[in-house]
Design a protein around this nucleic acid. Structure first.
Lengths: 210, 210
DNA sequence: AATTTGTCGAGACTTGATGTCTCGATAAAT
DNA sequence: ATTTATCGAGACATCAAGTCTCGACAAATT
């Protein structure tokens, strides 16, 4: 009863060029057209591959998109660690906001929309967003370990506030996603962590910035 | 060239029982099953009507759901006005959170998901959420007019923080929507408003601010 | 009462996307 | 040289959306 790890992979190996072409075609089409007009057939045609080559590796067209977005997301994975919560939080929020623009924002909307339709895509989406959540959580918990307070809700609430505002603006388009909007959010959340439980006659001065 | 208003409706009239049965069946199915498993055929079967009866009155199954939710949404929540931002904000957030539970939460997820796919549904969704935004904005601006500060981001950011956290948790299910979670969020946002803005000299003061 | 008009439930039908299966060709490990 | 798994390609079944038609039925009109 040989386990799969007992022998090497034999036979023809996976074509990396085809994989890249499929990912690129999916990103291109989901960014340009309404999601309803993107089909496995159109992606296969643009990538110059057979449909079966797609079905062999991805269960749905949205799984292709999620894999592509995961690769694109590796660029912003850097964890800020300057020793100060103020600087780290602003760096994280600014970097995250600046990464969310066309064409990425269209892709995010498509995937989040589909996640509400398909439980499997929803699970993939929880995992996808969880990676960014983990980065922010690390920043917050490191600050807490240093002795910096996180305010009434702790790290859990702060994480949901950052990504809540971000996703809310992505999905409904009601508010800005500019760098200044990012700074504004970071500043507001920092104020939240620093505020005293009652109107303060004295406040702690902000470290390192004015 | 007779206008439509020139004569009365002749012929058999629309069956109100069928309309109600269709709306109820749509709500029931969208609340119970994944949206992908809900079809016009299943709604028609549960309602005991022909498919053509549905297509005659609604363009898509989501139009049925939107009409049903519009009827459900007629319960207008009163605008809290106690004279204190702390009490009003907690009342609003608690009431809003407590209204978002099964089966409503499933319907909200379905409609928000479809809004990312259909621009027309998206517009309706912006309008739908805008009504609740307006209530919170009124609470915040009244507090500001009283002289209570709203913190670095002002009313715009606070509104997005409340509904951002709410929708983020609805869509991804990562955090709680309990009454205690609502109180926690309200408390955190209040802490944020109590922080003093330090570069106050560079800022144009808002009217009514201390 | 008879006629006209529009809705009713039901089913046949077209269209298009999904997903499976098979085929011969090809490339890598044995 | 053989084995094994991928490749592009196409046939095929399945399913939901949407259109069209049918006889039955109900309300307004004549």
């Amino acid at each position: 009863m040989p386990r799969t790890a007992d022998r090497q992979h034999t036979g023809r190996q996976r074509n990396e060029e085809a994989r890249r072409a499929i990912l690129d075609a999916a990103v291109h089409q989901f960014a340009e057209r309404p999601a309803a007009e993107v089909t496995v057939a159109t992606i296969a045609a643009e990538a110059g591959v057979g449909r079966q080559t797609i079905y062999r590796w991805w269960p749905t067209k949205f799984a292709i998109l999620l894999e592509a977005m995961t690769e694109l997301g590796r660029a912003v994975v850097a964890v800020p660690d300057s020793g100060s919560l103020a600087a780290d939080l602003e760096a994280f929020v600014t970097a995250t906001f600046s990464a969310v623009k066309e064409p990425t924002i269209s892709l995010l909307r498509v995937v989040m929309g589909e996640a509400q339709r398909d439980p499997q895509v929803h699970r993939l989406m929880v995992e996808f967003t969880g990676r960014r959540r983990a980065v922010l959580r690390e920043v917050l918990e490191r600050a807490e370990a240093r002795g910096e307070p996180l305010g009434p809700g702790g790290a859990d609430l702060l994480v949901d506030q950052v990504f809540g505002v971000l996703w809310y603006r992505i999905l409904l388009g009601n508010g800005p996603l500019t760098p200044s909007a990012a700074r504004e959010l970071a500043e507001a959340l920092l104020a939240q962590t620093r505020a005293l439980p009652w109107p303060a006659s004295e406040r702690t001065p902000r470290p390192g910035k004015c």
